[in-house]
Amino acid sequence: MTPSDTLILTNTRVVTQTDVLDTGTVVVRDGRIVEVDDRVSTAPGGLDLGGDYLLPGLVEMHTDHMERHFMPRPKVLWPSPLAAVAAHDAQIAAAGITTVFDAISCGQYSDGSMRRQMLADQIAAVKHARAEGLLRCDHWLHLRCEVADPCVVEIFEPYRQDPLVRVVSLMDHTPGQRQWSDVSKLRQFTSDKGLSGDEFDARIRKSLGDQARYAHTHRLQVLEMLRDRPDIVLATHDDTTETHVDEALSEGATIAEFPTTFAAAAKAHGAGMKTILGAPNVVRGGSHSGNVSAIDLVRAGVLDGLSSDYVPMSLVHAAFVLPEITDLTLPASVALVSANVADMVGLDDRGRIAPDQRADLVRVAVADGVPLPRDVWRGGRRVC
Rank of each mutant, 00 (worst) to 15 (best):
Ala83Ile: 12
Gly112Ile: 05
Glu154Val: 00
Gly107Ile: 04
Arg205Leu: 12
Leu170Glu: 02
Asp19Leu: 09
Thr2Val: 13
Thr217Lys: 14
Thr243Gln: 15
Gln17Glu: 14
Val222Ala: 07
Ala359Ile: 10
Ala86Ile: 03
Ser196Leu: 04
Met313Cys: 04
Arg115Asp: 13
His237Pro: 12
Val376Asp: 03
Asp201Cys: 01
Met118Thr: 09
Ser184Val: 09
Leu249Ser: 13
Ala148Lys: 09
Leu306Arg: 04
Gly380Pro: 09
Asp182Arg: 12
Lys206Met: 07
Tyr53Pro: 11
Val168Met: 07
Asp239Ala: 11
Asp37His: 11
Ser196Phe: 10
Ala103Leu: 06
Gln161Cys: 06
Ala87Phe: 02
His173Cys: 02
Ser308Cys: 14
Lys75Phe: 11
Asp19Tyr: 00
Ser184Lys: 14
Asp19Ser: 12
Leu58Trp: 02
Leu9Val: 05
Val76Tyr: 13
Phe189Leu: 05
Ile276Cys: 12
His288Pro: 02
Ala367Pro: 00
Glu157Lys: 14
Leu372Pro: 00
Val59Glu: 10
Ile353Phe: 08
Ala339His: 14
Asp192Arg: 13
Gln188Glu: 15
Ser169Arg: 01
Val26Met: 11
Phe189Lys: 11
Val167Gly: 02
Asn291Glu: 13
Gln188Cys: 00
Val362Pro: 06
Glu251Val: 01
Ala365Arg: 13
Ser293Ala: 03
Trp140Arg: 15
Asp38Val: 01
Ser181Arg: 13
Lys267Thr: 11
Asp304Tyr: 00
Val233Tyr: 07
Ser110Leu: 13
Asp239Gln: 08
Gly194His: 08
Arg350Cys: 14
Ile232Glu: 06
Val283Trp: 06
Asp37Phe: 06
Leu336His: 03
Val302Lys: 10
Tyr310Asn: 06
Arg284Pro: 07
Leu372Asp: 04
Thr98Gln: 05
